[in-house]
């Protein structure tokens, strides 16, 4: 079991007011699953993704990622997990705009302490896999939206993560480019990766093999496609 969530609550404090974002979420995800998370805004999707991505920890309840109790980890250990086990793909790409595609992709390896020549080679390999071998020295603000998202996917893949988290990866792209990105996701899934994808589009969700619907911080439905 890759992910085991048990009775997870997340409550934010807005001044004096407690705002519940997640309510008793229990969730198991196996290796090599392709999961779509859906739900209206305010349903707790982002909060769930943040916790799944170890950017945040549950208020109560337990979250085991690859048998590690994430709730008990300190900031450094969480950073390590994000660095080695999780690959993020964001709606807004979140690349360093003035750095080259290559530098963006090798960034996680800089923080894991890999020597320069090794990580350059790895980064070039991964960029080739997403079809960007001829644009890797371009700065990311010189790339198109689809190219940027492919750089982001390459960055997510570079550490051979256990889990790829994609937060509306097609949200800022036109539908044709969006489809290309979804194809890449599909291929990554077929190559054995575990992917969790947040989306508003039913047709994208239909291509995954499991859809979890959230509403008001509660899992409304969880069904195989």
């Amino acid at each position: 079991m890759l992910i085991e969530m048990n009775n997870v609550f997340k409550t934010y404090l807005l001044g004096e007011v407690k705002v519940p974002a997640l309510h008793a979420i229990s969730l198991n995800i196996e290796d090599n699953e392709y999961v779509a998370i859906m739900g209206p805004s305010g349903s707790g999707k982002s909060t769930l993704m943040n916790i799944l991505g170890c950017l945040d920890t549950p208020t109560t309840g337990t979250y085991y990622l690859a048998r590690k109790d994430v709730g008990s980890l300190n900031d450094n250990q969480l950073s390590d997990i994000r660095n080695t086990r999780i690959g993020f793909v964001f709606q807004t790409f979140n690349l360093l705009p003035r750095s080259s595609a290559l530098h963006n992709v090798e960034l996680p390896l800089i923080y894991s302490g890999m020597p320069s020549f090794k990580r350059k080679q790895l980064a070039m390999d991964v960029l080739e896999r997403v079809g960007l071998n001829d644009r890797m020295m371009h700065k990311s603000n010189e790339l198109s939206g689809g190219e940027r998202q492919r750089v982001a996917i390459a960055r997510a893949l570079i550490n051979k993560p256990s889990l790829i988290l994609a937060d509306e990866p097609t949200g800022n792209l036109d539908s044709k480019t969006g489809e290309e990105i979804i194809e890449i996701m599909q291929r990554l899934y077929e190559q054995g990766n575990t992917i969790i994808l947040v989306t508003h589009e039913e047709y994208i969700a239909k291509q995954t093999n499991r859809i979890i619907r959230l509403r008001d911080g509660i899992i409304e439905s969880d069904e195989k496609v």
Binding site: D75, N76, S79, R82, N83, L96, Y111
Partner: peptide, 16 residues
Amino acid sequence: TREIGIRRAIGAKKFH
């Protein structure tokens, strides 16, 4: 700030 967020998300520690 956003660059800091990106770096932290992909594994940079506070120390970095």
